[in-house]
Design a protein around this nucleic acid. Sequence first.
DNA 1: ATTAAAATATGATTTACATCAGTTTTTTTT
DNA 2: AAAAAAAACTGATGTAAATCATATTTTAAT
Lengths: 230, 230
Amino acid sequence: MPNTNTDTCVSFVYEVSCFDLLTDSEKEMIDKTSVLVNYKKGETICKQGSFASHIMYIEKGLVKVYLEGSIKNLILTITPKHNLLGLQALYEGNNTFLYSISTYTESSVRLIDVQVFKKLLRQNPAFGFRVINILNESTAQSYGRFLSLTQKQLHGRLADILLCLSRRIFKSDAFDLPLSRSDLSDLTSMSTESVIRIMKDFKDDGIIEINNKSVALLDIPRLTRISEKG
Amino acid sequence: MPNTNTDTCVSFVYEVSCFDLLTDSEKEMIDKTSVLVNYKKGETICKQGSFASHIMYIEKGLVKVYLEGSIKNLILTITPKHNLLGLQALYEGNNTFLYSISTYTESSVRLIDVQVFKKLLRQNPAFGFRVINILNESTAQSYGRFLSLTQKQLHGRLADILLCLSRRIFKSDAFDLPLSRSDLSDLTSMSTESVIRIMKDFKDDGIIEINNKSVALLDIPRLTRISEKG
DNA sequence: ATTAAAATATGATTTACATCAGTTTTTTTT
DNA sequence: AAAAAAAACTGATGTAAATCATATTTTAAT
């Protein structure tokens, strides 16, 4: 039997603490050259395909990172504070954003110039090594989602997302969902109608409780079984 | 209109040349501590879930990198010589292989101890920066495939793969396919029967020519249109 | 407060695709 | 060279999930 307990989540376990590996003068360099920008709910932080001149560090808030497809979007991750985004701007073969990012809540984002970031990577190997680990964690997560989206059917995919939101983002069995049904459909790669129908199925079966924006996971073991079965 | 011309390929444009950034003594260190292993056609180079103690550099041959799902595999990339694989072994939160790798042709693989690799990353920032770029290229590619697999239907997905194999791997409009129909189904996340049926459709429409293992792309513009339409 | 506009919800219909069950061809083994 | 096994192929059937059409509720705007 192959090891199939791949992580299917859309967010990260550990908050990033890469900046503590910088020297005081390096930190100062970031402070001096970066800017902190505030975004209101629903605003776009970066747009897929536009020029990527900076790395983004989420200091406050909650954002979605998504690919814009021709018919429909695909949400890659839901990312809370203390995470680095847009590291692909470092990739020299491509100076445009691979994805768009927008906010779910009021957010503060530090924009760090890509040249400054590159300089730090070149002069501080420990920092570079940490960045490699951040990229690797993100890759590991992508793979889990790859399997979830391509091999599980609707109920399994939605169970995956609900469990992940509960565990990783809201750290509680009950939470207010800032995402719309349509966002859930972009996360699970299904139609909005299917999201609604399956949420109702889960509700009718006593697996979750929903009224309006509030969601409570009542039977996590059962949800986990649905996730595993596909 | 969003920028949707994301790369949907399963292989890489540039061969990796990260080792030329090493000093002579660093190269010597790799030479001394690494081993070169030869694999016959069809052999497994690494197994998902087993302990990852080394990074793999493909010196010769052609391999597939794949996730083992509970019912079906998902091929992540088809990788030719001069590529680094298994960089996720560097990720400290996880010391097991995220994926399995096996060979399509006779291959030679250099196994580099992960501790040696980490040492090089810590002492040589330029090398580290190159590794970051390799990871970023791989991420960019994953995203393209994410969209292809989740949003296109069968004909589009198969067109994507055929175009990629032609452009990136075999660098010719006509080639002998070492992959089985079942491998194509693991690449496109469809059933083997569907691969066969759609190959026949393409053949009947004069888009491709197939006899036995040989494939020729006759009408690339049309194949490209099919890929774009989804 | 009233209107407009999203977002959510629900049933009926369609379809893209998988599954199943079989045959033929190719490859491997003896 | 013959037998066995795997891979490729084909048609018939079933179904998961999208799409369509329409109603209701919630949110936003005037």
